[in-house]
Amino acid sequence: MFVLDALNYASDWLDGSLAFRWSCRMGVCGSCGALVDGTPRLTCAAPIPETGEKVVIEPLHNFPVQKDLVVDIGDFMEKLGRVEPWIIRERERALEEGEYPQKPEELEKYDQFSACINCMLCYAACPVFAADKEFIGPAAAALGYRYNLDSRDEGATERLDLLTGGAGAFDCTFVGECSIVCPKNVDPALALQRIKIDAALTSLKSIMRRGK
């Protein structure tokens, strides 16, 4: 018995006006996030203790609540588009030329960051986002950075500017809560730190080039 089952029981048999999102009930669609006893969880994967203790369910923090457990994530969708989460290349291969070869170890480099299900638990846990809603945040940063690590992509420099501009990666204070709550073992905190390092190295390189 999971928290989602309890929510469904309540809306089916007790009060049909209860509003919450869910679909796959197998931890991959990312729609059923909520605070369970204060911790951001996927309700479909949060077991109800068999000891019969009370479980407190609240909407995810840091988002405008629309109704009950339904929060507005429109801001994330906008941020996701802003980090250009697609392959950027000077010349695109024709389809007839086949796939871009990518060795398993090259896939390994970005694989974990591509596992983000956009469930928003990391935003609910992030103290920086809590204080500043402009902050790009863990998921959007990790998803943008995922393309920087992809051997098929040539847009890293352009994307680093987007990831660090405005309330970008440098605002992250490396609390690491995002990585702790991630239900898919993505490490967005690591992505944010590496974005900072990559950006610092890039600007260092350009200073050195100018010095020559």
């Binding site: 695109e92 291969r93 796939e99 871009y100 070869p101 990518q102 060795k103 896939l107 393309y147």
Partner: peptide, 22 residues
């Protein structure tokens, strides 16, 4: 086949053989 390649070009993280092919 060309649709699978298209998705590959768009960044889909297909699993690979040792030589980098799908």
């Amino acid at each position: 086949p060309s649709e699978v390649i298209q998705l590959e070009h768009w960044g889909c993280p297909w699993s690979r053989e040792e030589d980098g092919k799908l």
